[in-house]
Design a protein around this nucleic acid. Structure first.
Length: 421
RNA sequence: GUGGAUGUAGCUCAAUCGGCAGAGCACCGCAUUGUGGAUGCGGUGGUUGCGGGUUCGAUUCCCGUCAUCCACCCCA
């Protein structure tokens, strides 16, 4: 073991068990996306550094991106997120596209961070966005998709919740407290941290930013006001639309949700496990200025991104991990060296009939072959020995029940289909 | 990027004050030459993460390094 070259820090090996979970998630993401009429797309994994420079959070761009110079001297970035690429793709074909766009994607991303539980340097993300529609109903559609996804992967409303707020509402409330301009984004950061810091530390940091006691008190009051959303017509329409689509049990208002990325302009949301044991499952919101920021005409957009790491850990912790053996349900043994060819041709015959079949490759003791079959997850084990050949049958043992019987060769494929149904 | 904890068999973990590196599970074999799971018996498997130092002697003490985990930071 000491001599094995180590994997790159923060990367993850996907052995078949983990790969099965990733593929399963991908399939669920596809299913939910398509059920709402969204089309799959993808951007390049490499982008110019400038694409992110002024658009994402400073931390993300300056400290967490993989940046290198290619052989032609270009500054290239391994994409840390997809939204700027989406904005660029929209800006490039701005006049050719039919709006609203409903697009989704699943692929790898890289961020140079210190790896921890639920946080790796290479990870996969589902991105889903609606572009060209600026309405609370569009925001609500994305939240409903998010809720539908949680439900589809087996998470109940008691296990995960989508928390919603609106930046314009918060901005207006802060104006009332005399907070605006450059200070506003600092205060957004402070609000984001309310739950994470002690009361004293939080107040101390607020004072550092130049807030007076009355302003701090005012912010604290805002953050406990669960009815604050009623002041926002946008959020009222949002919640009405969410409720009409049957997703209300997953979605609720939370005044402290603000999001870290700078490009959000309106409604924002995050999903959390209700037990509070993991970091955010996903986050997203409305970003109406981004296409403009990459050089296109202004186009409104809303969307969210789900990473595969936290959600996989959460599913495992809650016992919802999918049952994904992935191995063939039929295992064909080799009775002796002389019957190897006969077993192979039986396997080929069954595969031609559409069955998934694993072939044992040599005449080991049947005991060993049955053991391997059992461990591979096979449900049915076939034996083709002298007795079977003489009677033109195949012996079939069902490992689940332990029962076995001889089936006529001519009816074998059809019978196996029935046993597996 | 800052602070802290932990690295011993494939996995989970022991090893007294610095004195022969162990157990359970897993794996392989036999009991069982046409049949998996259960049981019994036996067996394989170690550069104690890596490198250096102190010592007669280091899993143990010290330094460095790599990795994992935790809290910050940030975020999927």
């Amino acid at each position: 073991m000491p001599n094995i070259i180590q994997a790159v820090r923060g990367t993850q090996d996907y052995y078949p068990e983990e790969m099965a979970v990733r593929s399963w998630l991908y399939a669920k993401m596809r299913q939910v996306s398509e059920s709402f009429g969204y089309q799959e797309y993808d951007g390049p994994f490499l982008e110019r550094f400038e694409l992110y420079a002024a658009k994402s959070g400073a931390e993300l761009v300056e400290k967490q991106s993989y940046v290198f110079e290619d052989r032609g001297g270009e500054r290239i970035t391994l994409r840390p997120e997809l939204t700027p690429s989406l904005a660029r793709m929209v800006a490039t074909r701005q006049r050719q596209l039919t709006y609203p766009l409903r697009w989704w994607s699943f692929g790898p991303f890289w961020r140079y961070e210190k790896p921890q539980k639920g946080r790796t340097r290479e990870f996969f993300q589902w991105n889903i966005d609606m572009v060209g529609e600026d309405s609370p109903e569009a925001d609500a559609e994305l939240a409903t998709i998010a809720a539908s996804f949680l439900k589809t992967i087996g998470l109940g409303a008691n296990e995960a919740q989508i928390l919603v707020n609106n930046r314009q509402l918060m901005q207006a409330e802060l104006e009332v407290l005399g907070i605006s301009g450059a200070l506003r984004s600092e205060v957004f950061g402070l609000i984001d941290r309310k739950d994470k810091l002690s009361a004293e530390a939080w107040q101390a940091r607020g004072s550092e930013l130049g807030l007076d006691a009355a302003q701090l008190l005012g912010i604290e009051k805002l953050l406990t006001d669960q009815d604050l959303w009623k002041k926002s017509e946008t959020l009222q329409r949002f919640f009405t639309a969410v409720e009409a689509q049957g997703a209300a049990d997953y979605v609720r208002y939370a005044p402290h949700i603000i999001r870290g990325l700078d490009y959000y302009t309106g409604t924002v949301f995050e999903a959390w496990d209700t037990a509070g044991e993991f970091r955010a499952i996903f986050g997203g919101g409305r970003y109406n200025d981004l296409v403009n920021a990459v050089g296109g005409e202004p186009v409104p957009a809303v969307g969210f991104a789900v990473g595969n790491v936290v959600i996989s850990l959460l599913l495992q912790a809650l016992g919802h991990a999918p049952d994904v053996s992935g191995r063939a349900p039929i295992y064909i043994t080799v009775f002796d060296a002389d019957s190897l060819a006969a077993s192979f041709s039986l396997a080929a015959e069954l595969r031609a009939a559409g069955l998934n079949v694993t072939s044992h490759l040599q005449a080991d003791k049947l005991q060993k072959q049955f053991k391997q079959a059992d461990r591979s997850g096979a449900k049915l084990v076939l034996v083709l020995g002298p007795d079977e050949v003489a009677q033109n049958t195949v012996n079939v043992k069902d490992l689940r029940s332990g029962e076995q019987r001889s089936l006529p060769r001519a009816e074998l494929a059809a019978e196996l289909q029935k046993l597996l149904a």
